[in-house]
Design a binder for these strands. Structure first.
Lengths: 155, 155
DNA sequence: CTATATTGTTTGTGAGACAAACTAAAAATT
DNA sequence: AATTTTTAGTTTGTCTCACAAACAATATAG
């Protein structure tokens, strides 16, 4: 039956015929996470470090903003940034408008790694998506984005 | 630009126009993981414990098979199952055909929790997918499954 | 100006992951 | 059959990651 996720019996809940989409989305997300994980591993980056670099590519958020975006406790962010800083991937910049706070940004090293690893991911996910036709890829991208942006909405 | 993931410059790699699908899939997978995480948290289950329960719903794999499926080291499985067993979610059953090995299966408690949490996930992802039309949901489910099964293929 | 709230760190605890060394049993060799 | 080699799982030690509670410094509200 090939179900490694969660589709309980069959009392449809919110929209009709939920369980199939639930299961396939969960399944897909594990596959993607696995690909991301392996890509990160090439550069010895944990999933959360990888995600951090991804976020910092075009932002210099405060510790607080990072906590919100990553849905982590602020004390977890302290540790995360400590470790990333120790590896010269990011740096804390004193906030100009709040003397308590810091903004976090990529170092040149961090930016380079982020770029390289981006290529790695591109390659691997591209390969994965290779089982689809060009039209299907477009559809999938658009539907995926629509769902992803449904919650918390576009920036 | 609302990109929190990874789409490096724009030299298409494998198929054409990769970067859009890469980004939206990565994005989607984070959203799904976040939903799964919150659902698990309701029952005080970590992401990996949650995934374990999902796998055990219709299997009684050996420790070794779990390691393969979860892509974890065998020693990580020992710890994972220890903790789950301590919480009476799963149990080790001595393998009938190999006196070194165990199969792992859900306890009745574990099965109940798995069922309940399944409903929780169903509800939350169903809600998320509510931004799509019924037709779109079908499309998405089918495309997602196709990609997910591309690697390692159906069981 | 004082009271309160907010930003981030520290400390302590536990889960989770890995690698290397180890035990017991199974499988392959001779 | 006896011996070697592989395999399944555990142990130990080390690190990352996450949280919560207590704390310091600064900002904001009254």
């Amino acid at each position: 039956m090939n179900n490694e996720t969660f589709n309980p019996a069959s009392q449809p809940s919110v929209p009709e015929n939920t369980s199939s989409i639930v299961d396939s989305l969960a399944q897909l997300s594990y596959v993607i996470q696995s690909v991301l994980g392996r890509s990160g591993a090439v550069y010895d980056l944990s999933p959360i470090q990888l995600r951090l670099l991804g976020i910092l590519r075009d932002r210099e958020p405060s510790m607080k903003q990072l906590a919100e975006r990553l849905e982590l406790d602020k004390s977890s962010i302290t540790g995360l940034i400590d470790r990333a800083e120790r590896r010269h991937l990011v740096e804390r910049i004193p906030s100009p408008e709040d003397r308590r706070g810091f903004n976090v940004r990529l170092t040149p090293d961090g930016r380079r790694i982020a770029r390289e690893i981006g290529g790695e991911i591109e390659r691997r996910i591209g390969e994965l998506a290779g089982v689809l036709t060009e039209a299907e890829r477009g559809q999938l991208a658009s539907l995926a984005l629509k769902v992803a942006e449904a919650r918390s909405g576009p920036d």
